[in-house]
């Protein structure tokens, strides 16, 4: 692995993995505690419609994808505020529609088309340096926003009504959070693929939640867990010649289940102590 570090593409892959881990650790924590996992999946998939649009009309790819994801995320946010108990259905419909639109538009575009697989699994091994700079810049902006509104987000995530009574602008904050999730997802999908984003948004925060005392601690620990997953997965993929995205996800998934088993054992031993 050490000799591999001299290759630029390996360095870029590692940096992309670490950046993704930090962004996903922070945003993923908010996604998990606010139960937005399904909504994030919906945003990520419907963004594919934006990609189809970009190719069909020959518009810039990035702006289309972010614009499309952002708009659909705002609709989803409005729906989930308005009808809490059926929002998942509507998000599911938008999820499917976005995807279908993207594929149809690509079908109608003459010439070479990007394939769905590269969108789903990304290509962390072929990330250009320029993408890393954009990712780092957006990451800094997102983290600054989250930092500025941290106490508000904390209050809202724990108890929306109480936060509102205290004067926290809950509705605007909710839209902002979902907008940030949309931009994050599209940004990171570029680099590591859709499936890996969902995995990194959910698995590290879920594990971190059980071992931390505060929302901030949960964010920090999820970042580190994510970094461990991405570097570990890249090492696996390098050593055993495996698809990198899938290797990272596989490693995360295995540790996720291990942590579940570990908790069960912990509970059982506690019970045994009491008896």
């Amino acid at each position: 692995m050490v000799e591999a570090l001299q290759f630029e593409f390996v360095q870029n892959a590692l940096i992309a993995g670490l950046l993704t881990s930090i962004i996903c650790g922070v945003i993923g924590t908010l996604v998990v505690v606010n139960r937005l996992v399904f909504l994030s999946g919906g945003i990520a998939h419907s963004a594919y419609g934006g990609i189809g649009l970009a190719f069909y009309f020959g518009w810039p790819y990035m702006i289309c994808a972010i614009g499309f994801a952002f708009l659909s995320s705002m609709v989803m946010a409005a729906v989930s505020l308005k009808s809490k108990h059926r929002s998942d259905t509507i998000i599911g419909v938008m999820w499917a529609m976005g995807m279908a639109c993207g594929i149809l538009l690509l079908d109608m575009t003459p010439g070479y088309n990007v394939d769905l697989m590269s969108y789903l699994f990304g290509s962390i091994l072929s990330v250009p340096g320029s993408d890393l700079v954009v990712m780092a810049a957006i990451g800094v902006v997102i983290l600054a926003l989250i930092g500025y509104f941290f106490q508000d987000l904390l209050a809202m995530s724990y108890d929306e009504e109480f936060a509102q009574i205290r004067g926290v602008p809950v509705k605007r904050l909710y839209f902002m959070l979902i907008g940030i999730v949309a931009i994050t997802v599209v940004m990171v999908v570029q680099v590591v693929g859709l499936i890996l984003v969902i995995a990194l948004l959910t698995i590290p925060p879920y594990i971190a939640e059980k071992y931390t005392q505060s929302l901030f601690g949960m964010m920090v620990l999820s970042c580190f867990i994510g970094m461990f997953f991405t570097t570990g997965g890249l090492w696996l993929s390098y050593t055993y010649d495996l698809t990198s995205g899938a290797a990272i996800i596989f490693l995360s998934g295995c540790l996720f289940f291990l942590s579940l088993i570990f908790d069960k054992v912990l509970v059982l031993t506690k019970k045994a102590d009491i008896l």
């Binding site: 209050a155 109480f162 205290r166 926290v168 939640e209 505060s214 929302l215």
Partner: peptide, 16 residues
């Protein structure tokens, strides 16, 4: 939710 009893009470002190 990852918060201690203290954290929850402190949310009452928060003024946006």
């Amino acid at each position: 939710f990852p918060a201690s009893a203290m954290d929850v009470v402190l949310m009452g002190k928060y003024d946006p």
